[in-house]
Nucleic acid binder design. Structure first.
Length: 792
RNA sequence: GGGCGUUUAGCUCAGUUGGUUUAGAGCAACUGGUUUACACCCAGUAGGUCCAAGGUUCGAGUCCUUGAGCGCCCACCA
């Protein structure tokens, strides 16, 4: 046993064991038939790693407590880390960082930059996770642009096609005119914006009164296809079925009725354009209106816009309003604040544009998604509702094609002659149709060799949603038994905001591709917030970079802070909680030193608990240990690491340190070795159990103490592998039936001394107990512990 | 407008399926303590109309109804 330095030099300690774990490859997965598997499908973070903060630390640490617990429990844990480096988020990051003009850069040049940033980001993350003690198997890393991920992702797509879940169609779709790509419903976000409600006059053919409509989007005037009023509205009742003339553009549109039109909103008369919003789209579909699609994919007005052709949306808005004003048709402008759907990556208001895109059928299968959701265990339970609500709000099929550079290509070619879609062969993946030839180089239908590649790439989620069945590919198919066992994974941990994307899409893909749920359990974490409860953000400048946090406080104390949030709840950054973690580490060191001190010169045999010689105090603490162990286990089993930590703190600080250690000091120091031996046995056993229970939360300090104090007497090479403590059996509980009275007596005397300002170590002559206690049994002990000459 | 979460000590939060005449913890405050593991400690004290109002019950922090504040999500965007 080695004496420990209680100065707590965490950076030295952390580096030492980080190196050791790496050298010994403890976290590398090796298949072992005898051990049960535990597979974790952890979120592949985006590589834009220049803003890592306590929130990232929190959510990954919380899942990792469970990982370490399972590994100690004897599970064969597979915990690889991926990086999500393809698709729009990466492109946006690179564009911003290098201030790229997309028109002036070639695709290969751009992709090269993306890959460069990707590698950099992955490196930053790896360093952070290592420093934080995230026990990832780095030998099995993947990235979503890597060949293996492309292969799985393309396989999934072809499989979807074969199963009828995939289709391509020309229709109005959600479009981002900044990113110049189709987007999905899940990529939208709300944003409040100030705008103007413009009252615009339409004329009727018969030359009656002006018809005033109110709109926030006057630039769409040239796309107006109808006016709508409610038939209950007396003002417009007579107009229904008649026609109105669109100002400036001068063509006629029908005036129709709809119950959806609210009489008291705007002017009660609304214009429908193709397309201004989702409501327009629905009316257009239901009432089979003519199309006058006006906005192009480049976000500009097309020829239908006549003299406004080529103007951007905002330019056209300005110009049209000016012309309306000139003509006297702009009757009124109201300032309003309204909520817009914007693209979450760039804040651009979403447009509806007619375009040919690829879709996965989801809107018609809500019942299946809900059923699958029920088959998965959600922690906390309430997070299942977030999922359910999202499924119920689905309106669109999942548009998975993106008109971008850096992503997984569709493994598809189109025959120019007969229009047949030619898919790559499943065993020849991955392919890039813009580079690779289609199978047999000819259309299988019409034998034409005029074949064009599909140039779209996939939505980044279309790849990351494959991770449940990508993980097993990392191990290869050689071991068929293992391959089969590796799906579905046991745990998916992630934050609540990607339930509607990563989790939902994973369920969709696993349903189509494998007919099964994608994971058995899901734990949902909250956000890390600043001390005022605000999100960490660059703009607010309200966080310290994560590497600075680590070098300032150490990994173990920060991990301790991360246990502070109840599962699924947000957690405010709290320096005091970090300090509490630091104190716990130091207290563990000090307690270990007490142990070392009392084993000095003692022959270290008979360390196993000998139930024949245990005294009531020993039995009591071991029994309390049993109780705490059960609660700590229950906490980890339910992904409630916070409960585990609270129970553990209570046991270690209050019961073990403040009571038990005080109770046995006199025995350890006494020459009466028959009493010292069971105390030593119990001390050794209970302390080691505490250390093991803290290990998932404070991995570094626990390994330090384990290696320096216990390793010579214990079989385990590391505290982290298969070392979870077991319940102590055969305790003679009949001996401690009245022990709570003894504890009450101790409290009573401590209080007496404290209130009378007597030091605990100062001996007092007499004390008469109020607590009724078997004095014959306990008075000797109490006199020793609390220094009393005569006790009654 | 709809939904979800949240509201408990000065602060940060626990409080399992309703159940002991006294609602917990940590931090902060206060009173003490050289107690040879630890002052990064120990003993103790004080501090609460459990957001509000109603209801169910022998019994409500916990269940129901209504309302308010805060946070998030969704819809409306004429």
């Amino acid at each position: 046993m080695e004496k420990l330095n209680t100065d707590y030099n965490f950076s030295k300690i952390e580096k030492r064991w980080q190196k050791f774990w790496k050298q010994e490859k403890f976290f590398e997965f090796k298949y072992d038939k005898k051990k049960p598997l535990y597979i974790v499908d952890t979120p592949p973070p985006y590589v834009s790693a220049d803003h890592l903060h306590a929130g990232h630390i929190m959510s990954y640490a919380q899942a990792e407590f469970i990982v370490r617990y399972k590994r100690m429990k004897g599970f064969n844990v597979f915990y690889p880390m991926g990086f999500d480096d393809n698709g729009l988020p990466t492109e946006r990051f690179v564009e911003k960082k290098y201030k790229i003009n997309k028109a002036k850069i070639t695709k290969p040049e751009f992709v090269k930059l993306c890959l460069k940033e990707t590698r950099k980001g992955a490196k930053t993350y790896k360093k952070l996770w290592d420093n934080l003690g995230i026990s990832v198997d780095w030998s099995k890393t993947y990235s979503t642009i890597s060949p293996i991920a492309q292969k799985v992702s393309q396989w999934s797509l072809i499989d979807l096609w074969e199963k009828g879940g995939l289709y391509q169609k020309q229709m109005p779709i959600l479009w981002c005119s900044t990113c110049r790509t189709a987007i999905a419903q899940a990529d939208l976000e709300d944003k409040e914006e100030k705008s103007k409600l413009n009252h615009i006059a339409f004329k009727t053919k018969t030359g009656g009164k002006d018809l005033i409509i109110a709109t926030t989007r006057p630039e769409l005037l040239g796309a107006c296809v109808a006016l709508y009023a409610n038939k209950k509205d007396k003002r417009y009742k007579n107009l229904i079925g008649k026609k109105a003339i669109v100002p400036i553009f001068g063509y006629e549109v029908p005036i129709k009725q709809s119950d959806q039109v609210q009489v008291d909103k705007g002017t009660g008369l609304m214009m429908v354009c193709t397309w201004g919003d989702i409501d327009d789209l629905e009316k257009w579909r239901n009432d089979k209106l003519t199309t006058r699609a006006l906005i192009e994919e480049n976000g500009k007005l097309n020829a239908l816009g006549k003299k406004y052709k080529g103007l951007s949306i905002m330019e056209a808005r300005k110009a049209i309003l000016k012309d309306l004003e000139k003509a006297g048709d702009l009757k009124k402008q109201e300032k309003i604040t309204h909520t817009l759907n914007v693209h979450e990556r760039c804040d651009t208001p979403m447009e509806l544009v007619k375009s040919k895109q690829w879709f996965i059928k989801i809107a018609s299968k809500k019942k299946i998604w809900l059923d699958f959701g029920k088959k998965i265990n959600w922690f906390p339970k309430s997070s299942k509702k977030i999922y359910r609500d999202w499924v119920n709000s689905l309106k669109w099929d999942w548009c998975i094609s993106r008109q971008r550079f850096f992503g997984v290509p569709f493994p598809i070619w189109h025959c120019q002659k007969c229009g047949k879609k030619i898919f790559a062969k499943k065993n020849e993946l991955p392919v890039d149709p813009t580079v690779d030839e289609p199978p047999n180089k000819k259309c299988p239908e019409c034998k034409s060799s005029k074949i064009k590649p599909e140039t779209d790439v996939m939505d980044t989620w279309a790849t990351s949603a494959c991770t449940p069945f990508l993980l097993r590919e990392l191990m290869g198919k050689k071991n068929k038994e293992l391959y089969k066992k590796m799906f579905p994974p046991d745990l998916r941990p992630n934050a609540f905001e990607i339930i509607r994307t990563w989790d939902f899409y994973s369920i969709v893909k696993s349903y189509y591709n494998l007919g099964a749920i994608p994971f058995k359990n899901i734990m949902i974490s909250g956000h890390g917030l600043d001390q005022h409860g605000r999100k960490f953000s660059k703009r607010l400048n309200n966080y310290k970079p994560s590497d600075q946090l680590l070098s300032e406080y150490g990994a173990d104390p920060i991990r301790y802070w991360a246990t502070g949030a109840t599962l699924g709840q947000n957690l405010k950054f709290n320096e005091k909680e970090i300090k509490k973690g630091r104190k716990t580490a130091i207290k563990l060191l000090n307690a270990a030193n007490l142990l070392v001190l009392n084993f000095k010169g003692v022959r270290l045999k008979n360390l196993a608990l000998d139930h024949k010689i245990l005294e009531p105090t020993d039995i009591w603490i071991l029994n309390e240990l049993n109780k705490s162990l059960k609660k700590v286990e229950k906490g980890f089993e339910n992904y409630s690491y916070a409960d585990s930590k609270n129970e553990l703190d209570n046991f270690f600080w209050s019961k073990f340190a403040d009571y038990y250690l005080e109770f046995i000091k006199h025995r350890l120091n006494s020459p009466d070795s028959s009493s010292a031996l069971p105390a030593r046995q119990t001390l050794y056993y209970a302390y080691l159990a505490i250390l093991k229970m803290y290990a998932p939360i404070l991995p570094f300090i626990c390994e330090e103490i384990y290696q320096k104090v216990f390793r010579n007497f214990e079989k385990g090479k590391s505290i982290h592998i298969g070392q979870w403590p077991k319940k102590i059996k055969k305790l003679k509980l009949s001996k401690i039936k009245d022990f709570d009275k003894f504890l009450a007596a101790v409290d009573e005397i401590r209080k007496y001394k404290s209130e009378n300002k007597i030091s605990m170590s100062q001996e007092i002559d007499h004390y008469k107990l109020k607590t009724s206690l078997d004095l014959e049994k306990y008075s000797r002990l109490i006199k020793k512990i609390l220094k009393i000459k005569n006790l009654k």
